[in-house]
């Protein structure tokens, strides 16, 4: 008799709690598996791209090298996916994976991640990283939904350690002479609201070169574009007070299922989000 019949024999899967069907299980020691930086929408010229998207660049495979120890490595292998901001206060960067869904139901994103400022000086640096988080860009025939969650670590030098969500509908702009291409401003820094009882102390550790892999789980129901679960490490949050940015469907986006992670810096120093592994599952 197996003592834990619901568990996986594969330890790479067993560290997750997926729903019935696994859609994505990515680690990054063999490649980026379709994770890519976000290019803002445009036609005619790159100058049409909205300013928030212009500085964003590509994720990379990293052994998380620090000056005092060398390669830190990932949790599941030698490489993690690294998302890096530019060294400009308030800069943001992200990586996403683009798919479509085959059933309108619940989905769940899980990941092991580590967020750190660039280890470029021998100081604690805990105030250098503004936030890290996840987002999705989803579309059913009824809604376009964009769940956004971030851990606000620090804002303008003041530690916050608070989870936030964003439900305020963002503006959009036409970014082409044909007027057929629009761009949604969902990544601008305004519109964040605190998750109820959302303060959490996380494991930064004592040096910018020490990384602890932390567990994130976010569930979403595609039918009404609502959060169904949210967990970070040992904290499971009540999602009843959390909303999702929701709007009328846009053209050409039927069944869109995009998942992404982002990081923001709070100083003129790069901030990094390392993603060790990602699992996306659904209830079908």
């Amino acid at each position: 008799m197996q003592p834990y019949p619901h568990r996986f024999a594969d330890p790479q899967l067993d560290k997750f709690d997926p729903l019935g069907r696994i859609l994505v299980h990515d680690t990054f020691s063999a490649g980026l598996n379709g994770w890519i930086g976000l290019i803002g929408n445009y036609e005619d010229s790159l100058t049409k791209m909205l300013p928030v998207f212009r500085p964003m660049n590509q994720p990379m495979l990293s052994t998380a090298v620090g000056w005092d120890s060398g390669s830190h490595g990932a949790m599941s292998g030698p490489y993690a996916m690294k998302i890096a901001t530019r060294p400009i206060k308030g800069a943001m960067n992200l990586a996403l994976k683009r798919m479509t869904f085959r059933k309108l139901g619940r989905i769940q994103l899980e990941a092991y991640i580590a967020a750190k400022p660039e280890p470029s000086e021998a100081v604690l640096s805990i105030e250098d990283l503004r936030s890290f988080g996840m987002f999705m860009d989803l579309q059913s025939r009824q809604y376009r939904g964009l769940p956004h969650l971030r851990f606000l670590n620090c804002l303008d030098g003041e530690l916050k350690h608070t989870w936030q969500f964003k439900q305020q509908t963002a503006d959009d702009n036409v970014v082409s002479s044909s007027a057929r291409t629009r761009s949604l401003q969902h990544l601008y820094p305004h519109g964040w609201e605190d998750v109820p009882d959302g303060r959490q102390d996380t494991c930064y550790n004592e040096l910018p070169t020490k990384m602890n892999w932390q567990y994130l789980k976010v569930g979403v129901d595609l039918r009404d574009m609502s959060f169904t679960s949210f967990q970070f490490n040992d904290r499971e949050f009540d999602v009843s007070g959390m909303g999702v940015m929701r709007m009328e469907p846009w053209a050409n986006l039927d069944c869109m299922l995009n998942i992404g992670f982002f990081v923001e810096t709070d100083s003129d120093k790069r901030s990094f989000l390392f993603v060790d592994s990602v699992l996306l599952s659904g209830d079908f």
């Binding site: 063999a30 490649g31 980026l32 790159l46 100058t47 791209m49 212009r54 660049n57 590509q58 990379m60 495979l61 990293s62 052994t63 090298v65 690294k82 890096a84 530019r86």
Partner: peptide, 26 residues
């Protein structure tokens, strides 16, 4: 991974001695 293509910078004005953001490719 044996090969990949990454755009390091795009649509930016470059001045002398400007440097792109580092791209890890160890």
């Amino acid at each position: 991974l044996t090969s990949t293509v990454a755009t390091l910078t795009r649509g930016e004005a470059w001045r002398l001695d400007d440097v792109s953001e580092p791209y890890e490719a160890g």
